[in-house]
């Protein structure tokens, strides 16, 4: 059901915001942070999907979009993401893939193939 996918997306985003907020409270009390900037090749095809995806990344505390490189002939759209609590490239990319998968399933109403 389409409505359930959208509701599940809203629930997932709220849970991510709460988890990230507690990490920022941890930063305020202990002062511990591990920063990194990674490039993420996104699967979002239209402008609407890309806008919602970058907004969702930024609204989650701990990840922030610093720039979007438009698609060229050789490679697709690339999103540059600043991460505050994680400097391991593979785990950041895994988190972004999961977020993007939930969003695209809610928007397209069909399973998203892995790339």
């Amino acid at each position: 059901m389409h409505v359930f996918r959208i509701l599940y997306w809203l629930w997932y985003l709220t849970a991510q915001i709460v988890i990230g907020s507690f990490k920022v409270v941890g930063l305020a009390t202990t002062g511990r942070s591990r920063t990194a900037i990674v490039a993420y090749p996104t699967r979002a095809a239209t402008d609407l999907e890309l806008t919602l995806f970058t907004s969702a990344i930024t609204i989650t505390p701990g990840t922030l979009v610093v720039g979007v490189a438009a698609a060229t002939e050789s490679e697709g759209t690339v999103v540059f993401v600043h991460s505050l609590f994680d400097n391991d490239r593979s785990s950041i990319l895994a988190g972004l893939t999961e977020l993007e998968g939930h969003l695209l399933r809610a928007l397209r109403n069909q399973p998203v193939e892995a790339t």
Binding site: I17, L27, A28, T35, I59, P61, G62, L84
Partner: peptide, 15 residues
């Protein structure tokens, strides 16, 4: 005060 650069501060504004 705890964050070390401006990008981290923008990131920490989220909550």
């Amino acid at each position: 005060f705890r964050a070390r650069d401006a990008l981290s501060r923008i990131n920490a504004l989220g909550p």
